[in-house]
Design a protein around this nucleic acid. Structure first.
Length: 216
DNA sequence: AGGAAGATCCGCT
DNA sequence: GCGGATCTTCCTG
């Protein structure tokens, strides 16, 4: 039996800024999901900002408030998990403040802990570096699903699930010169907003997802 | 009530 | 490079 992980979640004030600033700040931080099955943790290396009512690519564009995006309207520092394409989940960190529905999509992380558990969820043939690469793959490897929607990323106790905790803790800072900004992936429908450079990656990380032209 | 499209991934060609 | 899987959400009529 190894010593339990000591995790200090980032405070809520960390999330209380616009989604673009938060998307940069989240790079290098440690994403952790603890369940009854064990712990999987990764170093965040790819994020995308979604800027609310004025952003055509955001679920809250035009100020639409729906059951799905309700969490985005609440306080910062909570998880917004949604279901897409009939089979995938995606995980966001809610940014800004109550009534300002912005969020940051977590697209990729480098595995730090729980590689065996992550692989058991992803499949044998996946290389270590790619276990948490891509927004849906990241959720699958971490075991994040709809039940985590609304989870408080700043708190170790998550609702009624005794052994469940989804948090983001500090990590090795990423020097600004190692950060690349690109257009977001999969939002071609968003017109001019599709070209905004609101995707951020840690240059050179093997875990970064997307087409090769946008990997570095 | 019905339908279209989606912040994706994988396998095949 | 393309399309299928699979189902929720939201918009339209």
């Amino acid at each position: 039996m190894t010593a339990p992980l000591t995790i200090t979640p980032l405070p809520r004030s960390f999330y209380e800024r616009d989604a673009v600033a938060l998307a940069r700040a989240l790079l290098g931080r440690t994403l952790v999901h603890a369940t009854a099955g064990g712990v999987v943790a990764g170093r965040i290396v790819e994020t995308e900002a979604y800027r609310g009512p004025t952003d055509r690519a955001a679920h809250t564009f035009g100020g639409r408030r729906t059951p799905r995006n309700e969490v985005m309207w609440g306080p910062a520092g909570h998880a917004y998990v949604y279901f897409v394409y009939g089979m995938h989940f995606c995980l966001n960190a809610v940014a800004a403040g109550e009534g300002i529905p912005e969020a940051v999509l977590l697209r990729a992380a480098e595995p730090l802990e729980g590689v065996a558990l992550a692989r058991s969820r992803r499949g044998r043939d996946v290389a270590d570096a790619l276990l948490l690469s891509g927004p849906a793959n990241l959720c699958r490897a971490l075991g994040v699903d709809r039940s985590r929607n609304g989870a408080d990323l700043t708190s170790m106790s998550t609702g009624s699930r005794t052994l469940g905790a989804l948090v983001i803790a500090d990590g090795e800072p990423v020097p600004p010169r190692r950060i690349r900004a690109t257009p977001r992936i999969g939002v071609a429908y968003a017109g001019p907003d599709a070209r905004r450079p609101w995707r951020f990656v840690v240059a050179g990380s093997a875990a970064v997802s997307g087409p090769p032209s946008l990997r570095r």
